[in-house]
């Protein structure tokens, strides 16, 4: 039960990544020549947004392991 609640964090991470990707697509469409720079920044941002979901995943694993 606790692990299921912990995995709800994935919702927030999904929204965060969705916003980041939407903005990145917008900016690439506006400035196609800056695509490579935007891509690296997007990857970093997505990793940071994803990390919350991963922490939740690790916590859920620890909870379900007991």
């Amino acid at each position: 039960m606790g692990s299921a609640i912990a995995m709800l964090t994935a919702l927030g991470a999904g929204f965060g990544m969705c916003f980041a990707t939407a903005k990145a697509v917008e900016s690439v469409a506006r400035q196609p020549e800056a695509a490579s720079k935007i891509q690296t920044i997007l990857l970093l941002g997505c990793a940071l947004a994803e990390s919350t979901a991963i922490y939740a995943f690790v916590v859920a694993l620890i909870l379900s392991g007991k």
């Binding site: 990793a47 994803e50 990390s51 991963i54 922490y55 995943f57 690790v58 694993l61």
Partner: peptide, 9 residues
């Protein structure tokens, strides 16, 4: 935790 969670996932 980031690397571990990704790989284990």
């Amino acid at each position: 935790c980031r690397l571990f969670g990704n790989m284990l996932g």
